[in-house]
């Protein structure tokens, strides 16, 4: 006869319907002759019967309306970090200078004045240049907009990848922080981001938005490949990670 401890390991699977019909037979036969195991199964089923049901859940009144109101504030499902009610809309304040900075960085990188400085060996020349370019933010050429650049239904933001925004080719994909979570060169990124579609593409870079767990996986892969990843801030569960890949 099979040892009882082996059956004990199967009882939860049995109770939860995780055993095939063939696997259940010996367990059923054992339960018929073993009061201890039978008691465990009985107790599990008694608890199950006393668990509340989904249908009994009391959802607060007007829950759907509350959710839709929050969604209307946020706008279309294009990649914009949600403007949570209890956070100040800081991204509004950073977006204009950010757009100007990055626009300037793009120009600087293309022009004869290269952005990288001697000591900077990181994969983020754009990040290095951004603070320098910040001094130009006052006299920006990007039009100021009092509204979020991606409002529901305005233009073809989510479809064409060329969202209506402050600078001709950039969206709010970079989120409320002033810099992307991570910037990589195309070589460093290799094929690691091949599974993802960029939320934005310009002549010089591809922009990706990843979940926390996707970003963690990417980070691990990069570490193994030996990429320099100093100063990359962690991404919390529920937050998005913004990854820029320079072409």
């Amino acid at each position: 006869m099979k040892d009882c401890t082996e059956y004990a390991a199967l009882l939860d699977l049995y109770v939860d319907g995780e055993l095939s019909a063939e696997e259940m037979e010996p367990v059923r036969a054992h339960l018929a002759v073993c009061p201890g195991c039978q008691a465990y199964v009985d107790d599990a089923l008694a608890m199950r019967a006393a668990f509340p049901e989904v249908e009994d859940a009391q959802v607060p009144e007007n829950f759907t309306q509350t959710v839709m109101a929050a969604i209307q504030k946020v706008g279309s499902p294009a990649p914009v970090k949600p403007n949570r009610p209890h956070r100040k809309p800081m991204w509004l304040k950073t977006l204009v200078p950010l757009a100007a900075c990055v626009a300037i960085v793009v120009l600087v990188q293309q022009g004869p004045f290269r952005a990288g400085t001697g000591a900077d060996t990181s994969a983020a020349p754009a990040e290095k240049a951004a603070p320098e370019a910040a001094m130009y933010s006052a006299a920006d050429s990007a039009p100021e907009s009092p509204q979020p650049p991606q409002t529901g239904g305005s233009g073809t933001a989510e479809d064409s990848g060329a969202p209506e925004s402050l600078s001709p080719r950039l969206s709010a994909a970079n989120g409320p922080e002033a810099a992307p979570t991570l910037t990589l060169t195309a070589e460093e990124a290799g094929a690691l981001l091949a599974a993802y579609s960029p939320v934005q593409e310009t002549d010089t870079a591809l922009y990706y938005e990843l979940t926390a767990s996707e970003f963690a996986a990417l980070f691990d892969a990069l570490e193994q490949s030996g990429a320099l990843l100093a100063g990359v801030s962690p991404v919390e569960n529920g937050e998005s990670a913004f990854v820029t890949v320079l072409k």
Binding site: V54, A57, Q58, S76, A78, G152, G153
Partner: peptide
Amino acid sequence: QGDQDAFAQLVQLYEKRVFA
């Protein structure tokens, strides 16, 4: 695609489960 009414349907369909 951005259809908020369709999303509202999903909210109603899943609100009890999520809340549970």
